[in-house]
Structure formats: C-alpha cells, structure tokens
Design a protein around this nucleic acid. Structure first.
Lengths: 348, 348
DNA sequence: AGCGTTACAGCAAGCGCTTTCTATCTGATG
DNA sequence: CATCAGATAGAAAGCGCTTGCTGTAACGCT
C-alpha cells in the first residue's frame, strides 16, 4: 500500500540502511549509489514516515510557537518572524523544521494542553509569545512544565514575556513598564493632568506592567490618580470603544485617554468621535505596540513601537540554536515612543 | 532516563497493553486497574511518546493550516477560527488535535515544502487558506500532491480558495468575482465613471477574480476601461499608497479608487490625503474583506465583508469530520457589500 | 453440576526508521 | 607481495507504542 524505505531499497538494490543514509546525507555514500537511490525514491514517490523517523532517531523537527490570539497582528507579526528563522523552506538548507503556531486564546488550560502536546511530540523548541497569566496555580504549573521540557532537551524561549525563574527558559522581555511610563510622561509634558487609562485584562503581566509604568509617570509628576480614571477591558477595539464611553461618563473633563494597545486606542478614537469630541484638540489618545494600521488612523496614533519582528526573529534564531542566548538568559527589548497626531496640547 | 509505558506498567503492576488502553480509553478496563495506572502515570510524570504512538497506531493528530501571511489578519482570523474547531468538546473524547499554522509567505515552493512536511507527519487533515497561485507548473504539482495526500487519507479542505479539480479536496470558495462586481456597481451607481483599480499580485486567483468582477461591472454599464486605470501591487498598505500616487499621476481625473483589499485601501486613503484630496468628496475609496480596522478608517471604509471566521470555522469542522462536506465538495461563500463613508457621489 | 458468556488482562508481533557494529573491497605503503 | 588504512555497504538490534489474539476467572443459566 504505502511505500516504505524497504521498497525503495529493493528497487535501488541496496540495503535500507543505505537509503536512510542517502536521505539524511550524513554518511559517506558513493555518488553512483546515491543517484540510484534518489531515482528510486522519485519513481516510487516515496514519502518519509515522520513518526517512524522521529522515533528511531529520538529527535523531532517540530518547533512550537504559542500565541494568545492569532487573529491579532501583534502575535501574527511575531509568529511570522519566528517562523521565518526556522530554516526549512526558504531558509538555509538542512534544518527543515516544521514551525507550528498554536493559538491559546488566552486560556491557561489551552496553554498547558498545547505544551503537553508539544512535549509528546518531543518538540525541538518552543517559543512562547506575549504576556503571561498571573494566576498563581497556573504559573506554578507552567514553571514545572517548562522546566521539564527544558530538562528533556527542548529549547524554551519567551518572546515578549517576562522571565520565568527556575525554568532555564531564555527570555526576551518587552519593556512594557518603561514604555508605558514614557508614553504618559509625553502626555504630561504636553500639559495633560487628567488622564484616563484603558487597561487590558486583569491577571496579565503585560496589562500590569503597562499600567504600572503609567502610574509611575503620574506619581513622578505629582499627579494624584483618581480611581475612576482606570477601566479594565480586553485587548480589542470594541473594548476600547466601550471603556472610553465609560471613562467619559465617569469624568467628562478628561483630556487624554491612554489605551492598553493600538486596537483599544482605535476604539477609543471612535468613541470620542461619536461623542462629538475632537482628537487631539479635545482629548488626546495614545496606544501601544505601533501595529501597521496605527499610522493610518486619523489623526495618526501616538504610541510606543515594539520591535515585534526583530524580537521574533531573534527568538527564532535562539530557538534554532543559531544565535547565542543573551547573558543570564534574559534580555530586555525596549520600545520607542512614536509621537504622532493623536496627542497634543490640551485645549480645554 | 525518560519514563516509558513499560515503566508505568511495572509500577502499576500491569502489562504495557493495559496502560496503553487506559490512556486511550477505548477498551474495557476495570475501574480499580485504571485508577492504579493513572496514579502511576502521575507519580512518574509520564509523557506519551507521540512519534512512537503515531507510528504504532498509523495515525496522527496533526492538522495543518497553510496561510500566505500570518501577520495579515485576513489569514489570522481564518486560522484562529479553524483552530478553534479542533479538539475539545464536540469531537470524540480525546479528539484533541494539534493544529499547526504554516506560513508560506506566498511562495509556491514553501507551500509544497510544507505540504510534504505535513505528509511526512501523516497529518490527519490540511486546510489551505487564501487564493492559489496560477503558475502552471506549480498548479500541476499542487494538484498531484493534494491528490496523493487525499488518497493517503488526509482530509484536504480549501478555505477561501477556488476548487482544485481532480484532487478530492473540499472547497469553500469566496465569491471574489461577485463581490468585486457588486462593489464597483455600487460606485457606478453613485455616478462614478472614471475608476482606478489597484490589483493584487499577478498570478493569484484572488487578484484575478476580484479584478474580473470589477471589469464585469464596468462592461455591464458601458464604461470603457482605460488601461491606465489598473495598477498591480502587493496586498499591503504601502503598495496601496504607491499605486494610488501612480494612478493619480496617470489620470488625475479619477473619482474613485477600488483597492484589492482593505490594507491597500488604507494606503490609498493616505496617499489621497497626502495629495490634498478629500474622501469621498474628491475621490471615493473602496476596499475588500472588511477586516476589523476598516471601520476605524476615517471615513470608514466601504468594502465587501467576507465571513472569514464563519468560513474558517466551517472548514475546521469539515477537516475534523464533524460536518458534512457540501454537496459536490464545493460551496461558494458570498461576501456582503458594506457601504460606508469612504464612498460617495463624485463632486467634481 | 456443567456449560456458555462476559469482562478483563497479557502476549507478542509488528509499525518504519536509524545507527552501531561488522564485512568487504580498494588502493597505497613498506 | 603482504599489510593496512580508508571508503562503502549491509546486518540486525532496537526506538516506544498499539492491537489482534489468546487466556482465565467469575458469573448466570438450564
């Protein structure tokens, strides 16, 4: 039925061992023999049996990429960059790796399930992107699982995620706190004193760090934060829209709205426009991430650019063992403040 | 070193066969035995060896999803929807499948390479998203590969892609031609007679079908198309920006610009603004796909909504064998015209 | 009591490949 | 001419799991 190595061997009149060696190319095989084997492979349409091969060789060419939401370009850009470094198709010859993107949807259980699945497959490496959940039992389970995977030889890389102590995981962490601080400082510098903040979902490191940065900036400038100025939501446009209306209801005198990310900021802009407020004359808006569409908002979004593609590419190279991990296994990736039209001097 | 089934068996004082059956749960095992086994699994931290299991069972729980560009929400949304239908509740118990997203980057070679990789892994199913390349030799290679995979038992589903004759692949095709026609008809109905068209990359079915729809509409209304009115580019914002400037240079009297998709349309809007033209008073703009950000453009983008998430979910269910394929293996998914602020009556 | 059933559990034969060790042949060397 | 190193090829032992088939004990029935 299906063609096996043995069939190819028979056709090429060599032993299965030789065929295997031709296919893996790490053992001397005479040119004439090789050619004969290759011809047989071709004629029989032979396809290597991956599982059998992985079993016998005790290795696999699978690399897992975990993302919170694959429909969000924030993750898509990182995943694409990681995958582009996986050798395989398009990359250097040889290290063909099957990079698989797994969508956790922000669910802790799914995150663990996917890790178990990858562990079963004896994945060569795993890259976890985006913020971590701060739920205590889950964090403990993650630590334990990541450590076991690392111990079993899987390279574990965190991209845009805080370090995971006691796991041997390499971490490329985004400086969300610093970026958040800088952004809010920019607004304060423009003269804003009443700033609303639309935070992401609770129990996420990204959410917390950005918010902490914001608060640091307020505190540093002697602004007492009003509890009404913070609203939590999801990382999407809709949430930004609703949160902004809520913010406006709570305190109509706000002159600036800082959003957890660019999508949220876009929703905020829509809500402000629908409320008859002009940006930035009446209210300034700021986002975070600098996704491609941010520059097309009208006015263009002031935000913090995160080098997603660069960080992803680096994470990918480290996962492939093509780049040295940073000293101590931890590197901080900074964002860059992008001042654009959505922020201005408050006019009221 | 690593814990195997045999270790668990020894610890639970049963045979390996029994452990396997407990784990796969498709064979009667006494409750007390099952519990003993489960305890041993837990105590030893046993992790099933995926390759060994796949080899012995001659099946795999891998499902491949091929996308052109994972950083593009168009694909991200579909991939997320497909993946959301994998495993968990609804399927048979333990029907947890590892959905892997593979990024072809629009390259024919990578597309084939990934298919081969998935074929090696004996993937249970493969979903190909987005338009196909029309390059003849590549199309032939794809046909042959898809047929082989289908013959080998892999379920092949095309999502947002034209049917692939002679392959047994199930196709959920987007009605790009119809959507394109409707969109242009809408503009013509508003009074536009000189319409620029920014097409996607050549040799893509999506590009061609949308363009054909556009031309059908022109012809149906007796408008002679000027060859200067069509420019080809990529499916991204930047390309839209540049193409629009080119279009304006060729014929400054255009009153509408139809873009290959929403990202391109956003670029077009930026170019028009930078040229001092107002939307839609001076020039109307239309996109395609209705990605989430389209509604946030100012003015909001007139476009054709494609039910990406619905189509993806359906493709996912079909791939999982949870939904009957459409009769004849082919279904057309229609888009819906979304008329918004970026299109209006030409005022000059 | 004798016999057919039913319900579990174990044996053992692979699944298709990799890789160590061994065998063979060639040409070079002293 | 005997010997040895180097280059290739093959034999065979698994890798860790699944599953068809074979026990075997306990149970219900006539």
């Amino acid at each position: 039925m299906t063609v096996t190595l043995a069939d190819v061997a028979a056709r090429a009149q060599v032993s299965p061992a030789t065929v295997s060696r031709v296919l893996n190319g790490n053992y001397p095989v005479a040119a004439s023999t090789r050619e004969r084997v290759l011809r047989a492979v071709d004629e029989l349409d032979y396809v290597l049996n991956g599982p059998a091969s992985s079993l016998a060789a005790a290795t696999s060419d699978l690399v897992g990429i975990l993302v919170n939401d694959i429909a969000d370009p924030f993750f898509g850009i990182m995943a694409g960059a990681i995958q582009s470094e996986m050798g395989g198709p398009g990359g250097r010859a040889g290290g063909e790796r099957l990079a698989v993107v797994c969508n956790t949807g922000g669910s802790p259980e799914r995150e663990l399930t996917y890790l178990t699945l990858l562990q079963r497959q004896r994945a060569a490496a795993v890259v976890l992107t985006g913020g971590a959940m701060e739920n205590v039992p889950h964090a403990a389970a993650m630590t334990s699982k990541l450590r076991k995977m690392a111990d079993a030889g899987t390279r574990v890389v965190l991209c845009g995620r805080p370090p995971a102590p006691d796991t041997r995981a390499i971490a490329l962490t985004f400086d969300n706190r610093g970026g958040g601080r800088e952004l809010t400082e920019h607004l304060i510098g423009l003269g804003h004193r009443r700033l609303g903040y639309i935070a992401g979902p609770e129990e996420r490191t990204t959410t917390r760090h950005r918010l902490e940065g914001h608060r640091e900036a307020l505190k540093a400038h002697g602004i007492d934060e009003d509890p009404r100025w913070t609203v939590h939501g999801r990382y999407d446009r809709r949430s930004g829209y609703e949160a902004t209306l809520e913010l406006l209801r709570r305190d109509p005198s706000l002159t600036a709205v800082v959003a957890a990310n660019d999508s949220v900021a876009l929703g905020a802009c829509a809500a402000l426009r629908d409320s008859g407020l002009r940006i930035p004359d009446d209210v300034s808006v700021a986002g975070f991430d600098d996704l491609p569409f941010s520059i097309d908002a009208v006015p263009a979004l002031t935000t913090v650019r995160l080098p997603l593609a660069e960080a992803g590419a680096r994470a990918g190279r480290i996962a492939m063992g093509r780049e040295e991990p940073p000293p101590g296994g931890i590197a901080t990736v900074r964002g860059e403040l992008m001042v654009r039209g959505s922020s201005g001097v408050p006019r009221r």
